[in-house]
Amino acid sequence: MNSDPNIPSNSDLNSSNSIDDNNQNTTAKNLKEQDGFVKLAMRNMVKKGSTSLFHFALTICGVIGSLIGLAIIFH
């Protein structure tokens, strides 16, 4: 068939398709297991909705209040 060893034959292509399907399933599982902290935090925030927004607003108010308090103290 092909004399070039870099070009796979048809039988190689057929067998590699089933291997690729298994590889894709394994890769998808590994990606879910290796989700980053930010991605997990965002997913959690979407699930909890208003609770996360309330805590975010409290945090912003606390930071702004602290900065104003420090500005008043050290004025």
Rank of each mutant, 00 (worst) to 15 (best):
V38H: 14
K32T: 09
I72E: 00
F74V: 01
G49R: 06
D21W: 08
P5G: 01
E33L: 09
S11K: 05
V63S: 11
T51A: 14
G49K: 08
F37A: 13
L67R: 04
F37R: 13
N10F: 03
N44E: 07
Q34H: 12
D20S: 08
K47C: 06
I19S: 10
I64E: 02
I7S: 01
L58N: 12
S11F: 03
F56A: 15
F37T: 15
N17K: 00
V38A: 15
S15T: 05
D4T: 00
C61R: 07
V46Y: 15
L31K: 10
D21H: 09
T59M: 11
N10V: 03
S9Q: 01
T59L: 10
A28S: 06
F56H: 10
L31H: 12
P5W: 03
L13A: 02
M1Q: 04
G65K: 03
S52V: 10
A41V: 07
K39M: 07
S15K: 07
A41I: 05
D12G: 03
N23R: 04
K47D: 06
D35R: 14
K47R: 10
D4W: 02
S52T: 12
I19C: 07
V63M: 13
R43P: 01
T26E: 06
I73C: 02
S50I: 13
G36H: 13
G36T: 10
S18V: 09
L67A: 12
S16E: 09
E33P: 04
A28E: 03
G62I: 08
D4R: 01
M42T: 11
D4P: 00
S11N: 07
F56L: 14
I72W: 01
D21F: 07
N6S: 09
N44L: 07
A71N: 02
D4H: 00
I64C: 11
K29A: 13
V63F: 15
A28W: 02
S66T: 13
S50G: 15
N10M: 00
N25E: 01
F54D: 08
T26L: 08
T59F: 12
N30L: 12
M1K: 00
S52C: 14
I64V: 15
I68R: 04
G62C: 10
I68V: 14
F54P: 03
P8F: 00
K39S: 10
S9P: 00
S3G: 01
S50T: 13
P5H: 03
T51S: 13
L40I: 10
P8D: 01
K32W: 11
H55F: 12
I19T: 08
N25I: 00
M42A: 15
G65C: 06
V38W: 12
S16Q: 07
A71I: 03
T51K: 15
T26A: 09
I60Y: 09
L70I: 10
G69I: 03
L40P: 05
T51F: 12
N25H: 04
H75D: 01
V38Y: 14
D20E: 10
G49V: 06
G49L: 05
I7N: 02
I64F: 15
C61S: 13
I60M: 14
M45H: 10
H75A: 05
D21R: 08
F56Q: 11
C61K: 09
I64Y: 05
D20T: 08
S18E: 07
Q24M: 05
Q24T: 04
